[in-house]
Design a protein around this nucleic acid. Structure first.
Length: 555
RNA sequence: CCCCCCGUAGCUCAACCGGACAGAGCGACGGACUUCUAAUCCGUAGGCUGGAGGUUCGAGUCCUCCCGGGGGGACCA
């Protein structure tokens, strides 16, 4: 589409209808008003002052030269200077067959061209169960990955398991104490240890599995106990995420960054990354610690890599980890999905990527804001003390994974959100948009079943009978999914999916409400409308698949 | 003190990286069921887009300042 306008623009210059102008970025939009055509372009308005001509004249000079080939039925110029393009109705109707063919894969585009993208998300410390907020990151990351995949990128979903460092040692020591308590010993929890009851459960599980195996250990904590406890926590986290229909391609353990490898002189990823920083003169020693010279890369202050105790910071691990992502594993783009409370780490991590020899701009960080829970008008305080909802699992148990995903995805990442448990828990489509969309899909399926029983089937022979207002609106909605996918992938904004889903479902429901689809006396019209129903179902299924919500055939 | 995000209908939020008349859902009010699923649809009311300037053909969107809410600014993660 943009190509056509660009050609027309160049042609206009060649014809000397327009003076020579520098290249300009062309943007094609879908106008809000249907009277403005299927696509519109504002290039004439933006060019007008540069070429010193009235916008309307510029617009018509270009519009006249747009090729009236296949999909384009009409080009006209509107008021201030917009060029509006209308697609051929027959061409659009025939596209429905492509949609039906694609099924729930409808919407795929080849924007990514096999570009390798990693989306790393959740990555919560395995020292406790996932919280509600982690759910937002999970849904956001997963939907973004799905969108990128649909847009033709080669996507990997990764969870980074922080299984090294002080927090994990504390986890092990807490677990050891709980374990000993299982045998009736009076052992206090370590200072600042994990208070949660889940630690008691894990300890109980260890006792069941291995008996008193570590009871007399002189290690604190026993390495095996710690490791096994960690495995159990990771399994629990994985289970919570499966409930939310989020599955990862790869679980990357932090500790492997420190593995030396087999060869005598082989180095760990961490060692290599640190040498890279040293070689590039990005480190400085002061106050007994080793610092990353962020100021050399435009940051306002330096950051500690290795504490005076000799222990690497979390940031040092992150440097090694991102070295691994870019330089070892060779991703073209890495998208980290972080909570807004990590916002301060973005610039330094990007600087570190550049410092170890990668491209800092290829690391994108998607920050999402906090989630507040609400039940109707009442605010739900997420605290253990009040016994209210805290964990992701509790949330899913109350509202179900479909509503959880749909609601979490409804807001753009950089807006804080209120999650209304009452609305999400309702199966009533009037309260719950997720149900409304699912219901539309179920209704498509139901209509198609009834048609079969009435001896009617979808047919493409008389698609030209699809002339009603509701029919062309619906066709337009169905056909715009691929562009939406491309747009969401480019902007890293999967939340548009939920709005599209609702307007698509609404367009189908309005069509269904206004016209009978199955009319035995009119097999030709029925055939055409059933084709439209089939395509609607495919588009709904494709959208729900991207959101990660079930598309039921009956409700 | 500095940095980041947000402020849009009574409520929760959209608005395609400057476009055409700022849109949905819920809530409120009023209509439509001899049904292919009324779990739906239609209509009405509701807005100085926090405030003040600026940039330009054109601003919810960009710039400056102010107000308000949230999050950061550690040899914590």
């Amino acid at each position: 589409m943009g190509e056509l306008v660009r050609n027309a623009l160049e042609l206009a210059q060649a014809d000397q209808a327009l003076p020579p102008i520098p290249p300009i970025e062309l943007r094609i939009e879908r106008p809000k008003e249907r009277e403005h055509g299927d696509y519109s372009c504002n290039v004439a308005l933006r060019l007008a002052s540069a070429v010193r001509m009235p916008p309307m004249e510029v617009a018509s000079a270009i519009a006249q030269r747009i090729m009236r080939t296949e999909p384009i039925a009409d080009v006209d110029v509107a008021r201030p200077g917009f060029i509006n393009i209308t697609l051929d109705a027959d061409w659009q109707r025939n596209r429905l067959l492509t949609v039906i063919d694609a099924g729930d894969q409808w919407g795929r585009v080849d924007l990514g061209a096999g570009h390798r993208v990693q989306v790393e998300f959740v990555s919560a410390n395995p020292t406790g169960p996932l919280q509600v907020g982690n759910g937002r990151g999970a849904v956001l990351g997963d939907a973004l990955a799905s969108v990128l995949d649909a847009a033709g990128f080669e996507v990997q979903r990764e969870y980074y398991v922080n299984d090294a460092g002080a927090q994990i040692r504390l986890f092990g020591r807490t677990l050891f104490a709980r374990y000993q308590q299982q045998f009736g010993r009076e052992v206090p929890l370590p200072e600042g240890g994990y208070q949660g009851a889940y630690m008691v459960d894990v300890a109980g599980q260890l006792k069941e599995e291995s008996g008193d195996r570590w009871l007399e250990s002189s290690e604190d904590p026993p390495a095996e106990l710690s490791e096994r406890g960690l495995q159990l926590m990771v399994e629990q986290i994985r289970g919570d995420l499966v409930m939310l229909r989020v599955e990862f391609d790869h679980w990357q353990r932090e500790s492997t960054l420190y593995d030396q490898g087999d060869g005598a002189d082989s180095e760990s990823t961490y060692d290599i990354a640190m040498s890279r920083l040293r070689d590039g003169s990005f480190v400085i020693e002061k106050e007994g610690a080793v610092w990353f010279r962020s100021d050399a890369l435009g940051e306002d202050k330096d950051n500690v890599l290795i504490r005076s105790s000799g222990e690497p910071t979390y940031f040092a691990s992150d440097v090694a980890y991102h070295y691994d992502k870019f330089l070892t594993r060779g991703f073209d783009t890495v998208i980290d999905v972080w909570g807004a409370d990590h916002q301060g780490h973005v610039a330094r991590t990007q600087a570190a990527v550049s410092a170890v020899g990668g491209d800092g701009e290829a690391l994108e960080v998607l920050l999402y804001q906090l989630v507040h829970l609400r039940r109707g008008d009442e605010r739900v305080r997420m605290s253990k003390r009040t016994g209210e909802i805290v964990t992701l699992r509790e949330l899913i148990e109350e509202v179900g994974s479909d509503a959880a995903r749909f609601f979490m995805l409804q807001r753009s990442a950089d807006a804080q959100m209120d999650f209304d448990l009452a609305a999400a828990a309702s199966a009533d489509p009037r309260q719950n948009p997720a149900s409304y969309v699912k219901y539309a899909h179920a209704r498509c399926a139901s209509v198609l079943r009834n048609a079969g029983e009435a001896g009617l089937a979808p047919s493409s022979d008389h698609l030209d009978l699809l002339v009603e207002e509701q029919e062309s609106v619906l066709i337009g909605e169905i056909l715009r999914l691929p562009e939406l996918v491309a747009d969401m992938a480019t902007r890293r904004e999967p939340h548009h999916l939920t709005y599209y889903a609702q307007s698509l479902a609404q367009a189908f429901t309005q069509f269904y409400d206004a016209h009978r689809i199955v009319v035995p006396d009119e097999p030709e019209r029925s055939g055409a409308r059933l084709t439209l129903t089939c395509a609607s179902r495919a588009a709904l299924a494709a959208t729900l698949r991207l959101i990660g919500v079930d598309a039921p055939n009956e409700m």
